[in-house]
Amino acid sequence: MTVRLADLTAADIAAERMRFPHMFSHSASQRLRQWLGWTIVAGLTLYCLYRFDFVSLGFLHGVSKFAAVVVAQLFPPTGFDNLPMFIKVMGETIAMAFIGTLLGAAFAFPLSFLASKNMTRSRPVQFGTRRFADLLRSFDYLIWALIFVRALGLGPLAGIMAIAIVETGTFIKLYSEAIENLDRKQIDGVTAAGGNGLQTIRFGVLPQVLPMMLSNTLYMFEHNVRSASILGIVGAGGIGFLLADRLRAYELQEACLIIMVLVVAVYAIDYLSKTLRERLIGDHRRREPVDDAVQV
């Protein structure tokens, strides 16, 4: 049956609207709820704009100052004499991220088995390990760095430990999720052939989860290069120290060069890690580990 638009009359449409009201619009209560939701969002936004002085001369003054002082003075970048030093410090930053990620992965690997429902029979142990991981993750890298700078002194070691601690939490979560998603049959196979606990893990579990784990680890390494680049702001090593120093001294053009080095390095690492991850898990359309701790 074909319906031609020209044959439809207003009465037909009205009749259809009576028969299938939900096809034409949401119900009144649904619309009310949506309207109410948007009103609350808008109201709270207006209140915040007012509370934080967005509607003031000071704000306009700040905007003009940002345009005139900050943006205009960033370009052109200068300090190319220091470029080799910047690149060297960027290398140190990447090394910090690498060692920190590695330590985190090493701490998290055994704990992630404890945190998996299908590997640990004791519910309190499994639940406790998970919450411990949440606790480690819930402080930002910079907060841990602040703590470790006090304890270990200024320098990259504090930054490495900050990354290692946060990553322990993140990896326990990511790894245990990978372990929980594995296929039971291979484990049963190894057990049926008379394998003991360790052999079950080695031949039943690891072949299934290792690619996913490696891919997650690489992804977090990529992410941690970004994190490591700001830890220097609290004195925990890396290029962030130089950047904050130049910005605070109003040497914006040199800061611009440092930001450029940082952006190029981040892109290079992203590209490398993406290529490696695609080779590791094959299907490049596979979902990124969109984790609560991962900042995009």
């Binding site: 700040g62 100052k65 900050v70 910079l142 910005l247 952006v263």
Partner: peptide, 14 residues
Amino acid sequence: TVPDIVWALMFVIA
């Protein structure tokens, strides 16, 4: 790509 805390450093200047 520029971390938010670096943006913060710049906005604090202005």
